[in-house]
């Protein structure tokens, strides 16, 4: 083995040792941070107050990006991406606060850091989607839910069709395609978000 090879070997040993120590240190840090997030709020099951009003403020804020109630914890991440955390609201299902990431004036991510997400048990965290879907910014092809039956359905179908016809369409469907790079989707035939609209008009 030449002196050069020996030095190279030493270098690699030092390099990988240092890298391992670094990774372990990062891992410990992350584990510590995770503990803080996994706070489990006690639910109040006999108060069936819908969470929609409370969470609505957070999510609307997130989707519109105007953030009137944002607590002002602005931090720059990855250059132009800014993160905001909304106020915390109490709901029967736990505390809710929304966090958004904004890039170039557009919301690029919505998360709810307040709700615990440690498996196997966690609280269902609601995302208000109607605005997102109607704005054509959701990559969701269908919503699975309990069946709508005749009466509620008829009214909603009529309204969905009316809404679609208003836009000069023959049919409606729920998700305007915003798949990135989907050459097949034609904006003029992009269907109205009938399912979320149906949901929102039903209540």
């Amino acid at each position: 083995m030449t002196p050069f090879q020996k030095n190279l070997q030493k270098f690699f040993i030092f390099f990988f040792t240092a890298a391992s120590v670094g990774i372990v240190a990062i891992g410990i840090n992350r584990a510590k941070n995770a503990k803080g997030i996994n706070y489990v709020p006690t639910p109040a099951p006999d108060q069936p107050t819908p969470a929609q009003n409370n969470t609505g403020t957070g999510a609307t804020t997130a989707t519109t990006g105007t953030a009137p109630s944002v607590q002002g914890t602005t931090q720059a991440a990855n250059g132009a991406v800014l993160a905001y955390t909304g106020s915390t609201y109490q709901t029967p299902y736990g505390n809710v606060s929304a966090a958004i990431k904004v890039k170039d004036g557009k919301v690029v991510a919505v998360t709810m850091p307040q709700l615990p997400d440690s498996p196997p048990s966690l609280y269902a965290q609601p995302y208000l989607i109607s605005q997102a879907l109607q704005a054509g910014s959701a990559n969701i092809q269908g919503v699975s839910g309990a069946t709508y039956t005749s009466l509620a359905f008829k009214a909603s179908l009529e309204s969905a069709i009316a809404a679609a016809q208003k836009q000069g369409q023959k049919v409606t469907a729920q998700t305007p395609s915003v798949q990135t790079g989907s050459a097949a989707s034609n904006p003029t035939t992009a269907p109205a978000p009938s399912v979320p609209r149906r949901y929102s008009e039903d209540d």
Binding site: P48, P50, Y93, I140, G142, V143, D202
Partner: peptide
């Protein structure tokens, strides 16, 4: 598959608020 070989993304409706989803 959905467009461009993507999976079908299906959301689950929030039983407490029909305008919301709880996961996908």
């Amino acid at each position: 598959k959905f467009e461009d070989g993507a999976l079908w993304n299906i959301a689950i409706q929030d039983p407490r608020d029909p305008r919301a989803i709880v996961g996908a």
